[in-house]
Design a protein around this nucleic acid. Structure first.
Lengths: 328, 328
DNA sequence: CTGAAAGCGCTTACAG
DNA sequence: CTGAAAGCGCTTACAG
């Protein structure tokens, strides 16, 4: 079954393909009689005409795709949400999301060369060379969630350092003077973890508190129990723990239970993410919540602005919030 | 910066574009001297040539994209994993994954008409009309996870009914004679929930047990506590609960704690997914684990087979497994 | 064994 | 105000 082309629409409405293109694209600086406009639009509608993305991309040198490059590590429970909102925002401009999992690192450069996306959104860091190559090809490159300075152009999202600072600040305001940090064991999480930990450490330093005592904890009771004993045996003892995320925090809770440490009296715990299990834990988990929807929307709007050559829109203010429950 | 085209490669290697195409595509039924082949490949490599996806798609009428249509509800914690493995499998054939969130339902048909994907993989159901239209356009349509009969061609993944049956079977084998079902409240989950519940009910019916007592539970303690009281007040009382997923199961655990029901002595609980929080719960949660990686790979292989006009490969056997912990 | 040429469906100078 | 024509970069009959 041959698909409908602009030539079909042109023939059916008795005009040239040029006119069809002008009308359907609302091309500026060209005058077409209202009657013709209406006729062309109606014909296109009636025939179910959709312009070929391939032809358009070939002609213009640029596709209507935005390439999202995902890391090979789990981005968290709400990557789903993030991509959905991002896609929704981009769809307003008829842009679609092509996802690439950086698992197969080698083919990324082939992919962007082949599809000539309008923009590339990296959820993982690009090498400077790759970034430069993409920019030279006229592709807008949006930075990673790991940028040192999230306010710089071409980057987005909440600073991971700020996440850590919020955790620490909450704990310190609760009166704790010696903090622990529960790190994930998955090495692929190292980049995120480093930045969050830096935030915790900075907050401690500014308040004149000792460095946080970092212990890696696996997502099981035995490992977490050992971690809890380590913290409590320290001198001075750790009385509050900031965990990499809710999963790790839940492990610490389980470890405290196993080690016979009362939460929050003997050990306070704060996570990150506010997964559903957080409020259901015993005791319910205090955690730092991030507005993924807003972050994703902001990201989408940033991409759009970049395509228009406009400055990045200001980042929304309260993307982070401490949800206080009984674990602190 | 103009990008490298096959004409560049042709000129540099002193052959025609035809030859370049033949060599790089390993076109069958054409004889090219080994020396020429080597020269062309080396030149392409040296120049960093990547064929234009747009031009190729325009010429062949088919792109190298596979369109994944996602539902507007949360597909669960491991959609991420699922898509990653799917993408990895497709990448072996130089196919990329274009995701469409069905939030913006209207534009789906525009999207597939515009990009002419090789295949469409639906994680949500298509209307028969839409499905037919896509097939008429020569697009392979792979079915949803909701198909009544997952063994039929064009569908994939574990049967949701089977998930429910496994939960029920485990509970019944533990000696329980009266089961409860903890349903999610999100209406978007209704399709999945219906099928899982059907599996539980079927298993009960086959064993001559009464229908499961269904109670909707929200992801918070109060709601879950009320549900637990309802189950225990039934005559005969419910002694074991199959939950829609681990999040709901975690809520039931919290509800039992609040209602003073001992788990598993007074109420056994089994979930689905084996999220990290499951093993960390108190008591650790028994749950049905699904091999997402294998499902995704199978899905990818099924897509590939469909593109080759081959019959769907047999589905791997043990995609489901009951992880027994202390909640049952 | 290799090349010249057509054509996929668009958009956009350019001519009228 | 509208149309004829060129050309984006490929692949593939067809000719030699």
């Amino acid at each position: 079954m041959r698909s409908i082309t602009s030539a079909d629409v042109a023939r059916e409405s008795g005009v040239s393909r040029t006119t069809v293109s002008y009308v359907l694209n609302d091309t500026a600086g060209v005058t077409i009689s209202p009657a013709t406009r209406v006729r062309v639009r109606e014909t296109a509608q009636r025939l179910g005409y959709t312009p070929s993305a391939a032809a358009r991309a070939l002609r213009t040198g640029r596709s209507d795709l935005v390439l999202a490059v995902l890391p090979d590590w789990p981005l968290g429970p709400s990557l789903d949400t993030l991509l959905e909102h991002l896609a929704a925002t981009l769809a307003e401009r008829d842009l679609s999301l092509l996802v690439h999992h950086s698992r197969s690192r080698r083919s990324l450069s082939e992919l962007w060369r082949a599809v000539t996306p309008r923009a590339v959104v990296g959820f993982t860091a690009f090498s400077p060379a790759e970034r430069a190559a993409m920019e030279r090809a006229g592709i807008q490159v949006l930075g990673t969630m790991l940028e040192a300075d999230p306010t710089q152009p071409g980057s987005f999202s909440v600073s991971q350092r700020e996440v850590g600072r919020r955790q620490a600040r909450h704990l310190v305001e609760r009166g704790h003077r010696r903090l622990g940090y529960a790190a994930p064991t998955d090495p692929r999480l190292a980049d995120f973890h480093d930045r969050r930990l830096t935030g915790v450490a900075e907050e401690c330093a500014e308040r004149g508190l000792p460095e946080p005592l970092v212990v890696a904890v696996e997502l099981e009771v035995a490992s977490a129990g050992a971690a809890v004993r380590t913290w409590r045996a320290a001198a001075p003892p750790v009385t509050a723990v900031a965990a990499y995320n809710d999963d790790v925090a839940l492990a610490v809770l389980a470890g405290a239970r196993a080690a016979g440490a009362a939460v929050p009296q003997e050990l306070a715990v704060v996570g990150v993410d506010d997964v559903p299990a957080a409020r259901l834990a015993s005791p319910p988990l205090t955690t730092v919540w991030q507005s993924l929807a807003e972050q994703a929307h902001h990201l989408g709007v940033t991409v759009l602005a970049a395509l228009d050559g406009e400055p990045a829109p200001p980042r929304p203010a309260d993307l982070l919030e401490v949800v206080v429950r009984s674990s602190t």
